[in-house]
Computed example of a mutant assay.
Amino acid sequence: MSPYLQNCLDLGADIEYHSGTKYLSGHHDMMAGVIATRNVDIADKLYFIINATGIGLAPFECWLLMRGLKTLGVRIEKQQQNAQKIAGFLERQPGVTKVHYPGLPSHPQYELHSSQSLGAGGVLSFETGDIATSERVVDAAKLYSISVSFGSVSSLISLPCRMSHASIPAEVRQERALPEDLIRLCVGIEDADDLIEDLRNALETAGVRTKD
């Protein structure tokens, strides 16, 4: 969500943490985290730890983060517009078994998400019903780079159970109902029609039925 779409302090949280590496930066060229609180005592304690351990950002990383913040709004707006279109496209495809995106009315927590956020963001996932098919989809995509990170202006695609979540034992993934065929998309700012066409070609290459 980033703080552009969701403010956890307004929802009752005592401490709010956001990844500066991802949406706040938006260019995959730095590592940082941002911590916020309204409680002065908590803020003083956090500052003491950061100052005492020397983990504060260097000047150049601060500059990179400030540069990213200047375009946060326009990036997020474009990314979630693209994600909404892509989610709608995927939901219409007969060969896609399930689409996970809080911007779709079909999402089981659509109303809850809408009550807590100003938008649905740029990350979505979907299932094909078959692990091998999902692997072929990921391999066939051309405009989406294969990566486990997200928040960049460039669109990314990944197979969590074979990448970011591969270290979690299979039985634990099963207990937590994490689909092995799940494909995650982190949508960038490219042209939405180009992204959809590339995804359609990848699905068809993998043998997934599609329609307009």
Rank of each mutant, 00 (worst) to 15 (best):
D41C: 11
G122V: 02
S134F: 07
E180W: 04
T210W: 01
I42A: 09
Q174R: 15
A120D: 05
V187W: 00
A206M: 07
M163T: 15
A206E: 07
I196W: 03
A202S: 12
I157Y: 01
E91D: 13
S117P: 02
P108L: 13
A36H: 10
T71H: 09
D194F: 00
C62A: 11
L69C: 06
T210F: 02
I50H: 05
L64I: 06
V148Y: 02
G188R: 02
P3A: 07
E111K: 14
V40N: 11
R92F: 02
V96M: 03
D29V: 05
R92V: 01
V187Y: 00
G73H: 08
T210Y: 00
H113P: 01
P3E: 11
I50L: 08
G54S: 02
I196V: 10
G119N: 03
F126M: 01
G12V: 10
G122F: 06
I76F: 02
D44I: 10
V153E: 14
Y17E: 10
A43T: 06
H100D: 15
G95W: 09
T205C: 06
S2V: 02
N201A: 15
V148D: 06
V137W: 09
D181S: 07
S115R: 14
M30Y: 04
L124A: 01
L24K: 05
A192Y: 01
A120T: 01
E127M: 14
I157N: 00
C161R: 04
L143G: 05
E16M: 14
Y144M: 12
